[in-house]
Design a protein around this nucleic acid. Sequence first.
RNA 1: CGGGGCGUAGCGCAGUUUGGCUAGCGCGCCUGCCUUGGGAGCAGGAGGUCGGAGGUUCAAAUCCUCUCGCCCCGACCA
Length: 571
Amino acid sequence: MKWSQTLIPTLKESPSEAEIDSHKLMIRAGLIRRITAGAYAYLPLGILVLNKVINIVREEMNRAGAVEVFLPALQPLGLLEESGRLSIFGDDLITFEDRHGKVTALGPTHEEIITDIVRNEISSYRQLPITLYQIQTKFRDETRPRFGVLRSKEFIMKDAYSFDIDYEGLSKSYKSMYDAYCRIFDRCGLDYIVVEADSGAMGGDVSHEFMVPSHVGEDVLIRCLKCGYSANRERAEAAPIPPENHMTPQPLKEIPTPDKRTIQEVSDFLQVKPNRMVKTMIYISNGQPIAILLRGDHEVNETKLTKVLGQETLALADHNTIEHVTGASVGFAGPVGLPVKIIADQAVSVLCNFVTGANKPDMHLLNVNLERDFVIDQIADVRYVAKGDRCPKCYHEIDISQGIEIGHVFKLGTKYSDALKAKFLDATGKEKSMIMGCYGIGVNRIIAGLIEISHDENGIIWPLSLAPYKVIIIPVNVNDTPSMQMANQIYDDLTSNTGIEVLLDDRDQRPGVKFKDADLIGIPIKIVIGKKFTETKELEIKLRKSGETFLTPPEEVRSRLKSLFEMLSKP
RNA sequence: CGGGGCGUAGCGCAGUUUGGCUAGCGCGCCUGCCUUGGGAGCAGGAGGUCGGAGGUUCAAAUCCUCUCGCCCCGACCA
């Protein structure tokens, strides 16, 4: 491609709408333009990269034995109702009413559609297992789109669904997808880590997330840098905190704390550290109020709590309920004398002489102790891992960082096949639910994630595998006939004889402009035709990443490129 | 949805507090000259419903009301 014949609108200045590096660079390098909040147009350079990613994904899916389909963006609400996810997606679902008054959704994901197809078309174990996938735009009315294509209202996702006759088969399908994901992200040049995840709204049990560590990531990574334990925030566990056996219980004491409601306020007022305090949170579970005890510096993990309670519905109690249950306004709840079921987090169960609310207005209790002052119904792990916690496997201090979620695999089991009645007859003629797995990749996020970890002050640094063009030819002076002839000759040769994607910067711009633009758009290899060519007929081949330069006579360009490609392809 | 901010040329911004000539600046764009190894220089030029609607006023980018859009923090989120 010749620069003058395509559209690569680079910007010298950073657009004000962008906050993070990948977003800024995608706009400055002319990959994308925002059309409205959470929706982006991909310009010529952007779609070239997008297609590179898609091709890699498609190749690896096919290699893993998955079969491609293409599903509609339009979805009837009925299927979502049938699976019970209409209310779960709620306002995230983008819907509209058609001319007949029928309400239709823009698909946020496709479990229901694919399951509907499979239940209609597959009825025998002889047709299983099968894994179907598609690469398609998904729509979600995110409450707050941000960071460019990292969180947008429409985004491209590769989603795959496996159907097996038993759990052993599911494990094989899962493993096969998991391995394919590793190959995909490796080929894209991403540094990623795999974490244990909770399956959340998807249902099912086993789940892994593929994350690119990055300070702009919206997901939390809990890792042990010693033994390799890794999990996401919902899933991560900490080693139990050992009991404080050296402390002797002190007499219980009531103390006035006028208008001190939050842990921080009480902590400052009483000069007691938050980790010596216990907060009492009133939840409504199955219509009944229950109390959750947490250390003052810890946060409740509702995912874990839901599992402990075995309840589908769980919500914080409203202020009226709290006052009714505790006898005091919000901020003064405590376990002593509380007439409801009490679940204590493990970290609370090892404390002595702690501070709690007194269940009286403007009063707290000092030197509260378990057993002596109140009894609990259950000890459980219901909190998020916090700084200072230790690894549950090896007791090394745990590391908390952030990451961008680029892929997620789930073992779903029969959640959807039961709900949607996707059944088959096994070899003995018995009807069974299909065993499902689902596997997603955020295609746009791969691009943004890659840029986050691969750029410098001059712009993007593409790996060979994703680069929109592998080589850019820069004739320093387009008005110098010999240089231009040389540039065209190499361009024609590479384009027609090697299949290497080449961009020829034929613009009549000063060299500085062209070098800066080449760096900004991140082309891995530059071929510069300039002073050296005029003097000695040599071309300069320069690498974007390292800045290394090789002087090469024109007839050796192809062989030089070949060896450089080999070098750059190595991880 | 709560809090904060912004909307003036393709991009980045000043001007708005305290209303007042033809609405400015940098980058980009067009023409010419000159220049050609890291975002050159000179000269000339094009480009604006000041987000939109209504109002106050002799006069509105500026004040008032309504409205639309965008960004940030939080809540939310496979």
